[in-house]
């Protein structure tokens, strides 16, 4: 029995439509699911490589697009290596969407400051698509993005487009600049010194590697952001995505079910939030 449509463990199939090399270690994959697939920005999917393994990714595409879904994957180990070897036409599996994404309604009428690092740009791009589509609901959007070197900066065409949109301000930095780099040098948090923001009427969103999340959050607190206005997208080991397997515990929370997006106020007392 029980090869049901609703089997929570069974992925739906999706075809790889396009592969985009974003940086030496990061590729994006445009997937066409076998049937329409919708998600809210910040929710994640489990991507199955047939017979090899499964890993969680937050779609980087617009949540308004139902026929295609894009994930941006950094080569980090066993499964992600195999994902990087995918070619157009290959079939993968997806389960989801899972979790609690960004609560956009809570951002309405405010300025949104986004701090992103490395591959943490993936969920943020999906958020930015959403913010663009609902531009009238927000005062201003400020993106601060950092990467290791200029060649590690991802989504170059998207960033160029974004710069042309009114109400959107883009700041970028790299840890180590070269002669081609005309923007800031330094860790991403230095960008926060340059931005103009009305903190009491703003929320901050942070996504990136654990160290960056930690120092980003501390910097925002120092600037005067209340703990409940700092939104963090937490990375944990995951298996089921369903609040059952126990791999993603962050204190009393299941990151897969209660997160991955949390306010700092919600999780600040849980152990190991920065690992």
């Amino acid at each position: 029995m029980s090869e049901t449509k609703n089997n929570i463990y069974k992925p739906i199939k999706a075809k790889v439509d396009k592969v985009i090399q974003e940086s030496p270690a990061i590729k994006s994959f445009v997937l066409i699911p076998e049937h329409e697939f919708s998600f809210k920005t910040g929710e994640f999917i489990e991507l199955t490589l047939n017979g090899y393994g499964e890993a969680p990714f937050t779609p980087s595409s617009s949540p308004l697009e139902k026929k295609k879904i894009e994930v941006t994957v950094m080569k980090a180990g066993y499964v992600t290596d195999k994902i990087h070897a995918l070619r157009p036409g290959n079939i993968v599996g997806i389960r989801g969407p899972f979790g609690r994404g960004y609560p956009l309604e809570k951002f309405y009428g405010k300025e949104v400051v986004i701090l992103g690092g490395g591959c943490g740009f993936a969920p943020i791009r999906s958020l930015l698509y959403n913010l663009m589509a609902e531009k009238d609901n927000f005062k201003k959007v400020t993106l601060c993005y950092g990467a290791k070197t200029p060649e590690d900066c991802i989504y170059k065409p998207f960033v160029d487009e974004l710069r042309k949109v009114d109400k959107f301000e883009i700041y970028r930095s790299v840890d180590k600049a070269d002669e081609t780099w005309e923007e800031k040098e330094g860790v991403v948090t230095v960008l926060l010194d340059d931005i103009k923001v009305d903190i009491p009427n703003s929320v901050a969103v942070v996504c990136g590697p654990p160290v960056m999340m930690k120092f980003g959050t501390f910097k925002l607190l120092e600037m005067g952001y209340p703990e409940e206005d700092i939104y963090l997208s937490m990375e944990k080991n995951m298996s089921c995505g369903l609040g059952k397997c126990g791999h993603c515990m962050l204190g009393k929370y299941f990151v897969c079910k209660d997160g991955p997006v949390f306010t700092y106020a919600e999780i600040k007392n849980e152990p190991g939030i920065w690992l």
Partner: peptide
């Protein structure tokens, strides 16, 4: 538990435990 992938997009749910090293290891 841990889900283990098998050919044909099948998955095996296998007992796992936080006492085993690597249970929460991330990339």
């Amino acid at each position: 538990f841990l889900l283990i992938d098998r050919p044909d997009f099948e998955k095996v749910r296998q007992v796992d435990a936080c006492q085993f090293p690597g249970f929460e290891k991330i990339a």
